[in-house]
Every structure is written in structure tokens, then in C-alpha cells.
Amino acid sequence: MKTILITGASSGIGEATARHFQAQGWNVIATMRSADSTGELAALDNVHLARLDVTDPASIAAAVKQGIERFGRIDVLLNNAGYGAYGALEAFSMERIRRQFDTNVIGLLEVTKSVLPHMRENRSGTIINISSIGGQITFPLGTLYHGTKFAVEGLSEALHYELEPLGIRVRIVEPGMIRTNFGGSSFDFALDDSLPDYAPTAEAMGRVFSRLASSPSAPATVAEVIWGAANDSGDRLRFRAGPDAVALLDQRHQQDDATFIGGIKELMKP
């Protein structure tokens, strides 16, 4: 029986993926920042719950150790934990800037490094990193979030070369607009009343997201794509999740910068 370790499994994509893999007969190491956020996962067979905060190295090491002790091996790592910081760069303190990169990039690398010795010893394994359409295209006031997701795309592609000779595969999953708590606890928006120059762009960003997020996909949609990525035996690197992700990324790749960015600016208009 195979085993997957999932970060950020308390809700949204992480929880949906835990349920999907468990239903397919896998062992699941479902990790989350708070032990109080276990929800209904605790009642499922072959699910081990562990505290893991991607900004806390000790918790990462402990969760990986517990998972291996419980199930004997880790076949797939899903780096899912993350959140989005949006707003004018000037409105963010350096502490909040570092928190965004520590969570979405440094934390992902720390978890990956913790699992790699085990996978390297077994000469097998798959690492799946959750990126976003925002890892290849950008929206207004997304300097921090898009910066982290572009980083995830680059580091994942480089790791693909690095780990393939060792029998370890790397996959990138790029969701579009998903019905999760991204706009709630997983969203950090900085708005500073002392910076009114950015107010029109903030209003425009609201219009962009309202138009793009009119029909978000369910987290289960991403879970199914993750399942496909975990079980794909080929050398495919990127997997899109959601019809909007397919359409927007196709559009981005078919257009030059001026044309695509012009389209985003059109969305920003009242």
C-alpha cells in the first residue's frame, strides 16, 4: 500500500486530496499547523494526523519521522501548504513579506529536503508541488504571491533534472480559481489608507477577481489532478487543474506580453 504525505491538509485542496487518496486505498499522512484542525479526517482508516508547520523545522522533521514509523515509507510528497499575500508592496512590512516567502517557498524547500533522504534511499518517490495559474501569469497587486509561485515553478523544474536520475519524479500542479478559503484565512491583503495612490488599482483587482472567480472549481477537481500526477508514469512536469487554468495558460502561451497584459488591463476596467 502506497503512502502520501500532505502539507496543509486541514481544509481545501489538502483535505480533498487526503480524502481522495484514502478512498483509493492509500495511506495518508495528513499534516497541518494546528492539531485542532483535524476535522473529519481523524475518523478515516489509514490516515495519520500530524502537526506540521512549514515555518517550523522541528515540526517538519517530527511529522516525517512519525509518518515513516507509522506506514514504513513515503511514496508521494504533496507540498500544498501556502497562502496568498496581495496588496501594494509599500503596504507590506518586511516581516509580512518574509512570512509569505517563508511559507510558500522556504517551507516547501524545507519539507522537500526532509523527505528526500528517504526517497533517495528507496530510489523512488514523487514530489508534487502546488503552484497556481499565478505561477505563470500575474494579476494586480500580486507582487508577493506571484513571486512565490514563480519561484515554485522554477525550483520544481530544476529539481526535475536533479532528481530524475535518482528515481524521484517532480510534478507541478497549477490550479485555477478554486472554491477554497483562499479569500479567508489563506489570504493576506494589505491596504494602507496612507497610500491612496493605490486605491484605484485595488478596486480594479476586485473587479478582476470577481470576473475570473465567477465559477470556481471544487477542491475535489484539484485532488483528481493530483491523483493523476502521482500515478503518471511518463515525464510530464506540469498538470493544470480547472477549465479556467487550461484556458488562461493556453492564452498566455499563445500571446506576447503586450497582448496578454493588455487583456488583463481590460478586465480591470469598470
Rank of each mutant, 00 (worst) to 15 (best):
T126H: 04
H20R: 15
M205V: 04
D244W: 05
G8I: 04
I128R: 04
G84V: 05
L237T: 00
V54I: 07
S37V: 10
I97D: 06
L249A: 12
G154H: 05
K265V: 13
F189I: 11
M205I: 04
M119C: 09
A91F: 02
G39W: 02
V208R: 03
A23L: 14
E40S: 15
P243H: 12
T259G: 12
A190H: 01
S214M: 11
V105R: 06
I264P: 09
V173P: 03
L155D: 01
A213L: 07
A62C: 12
M177R: 08
T3A: 04
G184T: 08
E224Y: 12
L144T: 10
S210V: 11
F182R: 01
R120E: 09
L5F: 09
G125E: 00
E203G: 02
A190R: 01
R120A: 13
L44S: 13
T138R: 09
D45C: 11
D193C: 10
L5M: 15
D192A: 08
F139W: 13
T138Q: 04
I29H: 00
A158H: 13
R211T: 13
T31A: 04
N231K: 09
D244G: 03
N27M: 10
V115Q: 00
T38W: 14
G206P: 09
N104S: 13
L195D: 07
L52T: 00
D56C: 08
G125A: 07
G8S: 11
P196H: 01
I172K: 05
L144Y: 02
N46Q: 15
R19Q: 14
G167H: 10
A23E: 15
A245F: 05
P165R: 08
V222A: 02
G8T: 00
A18P: 09
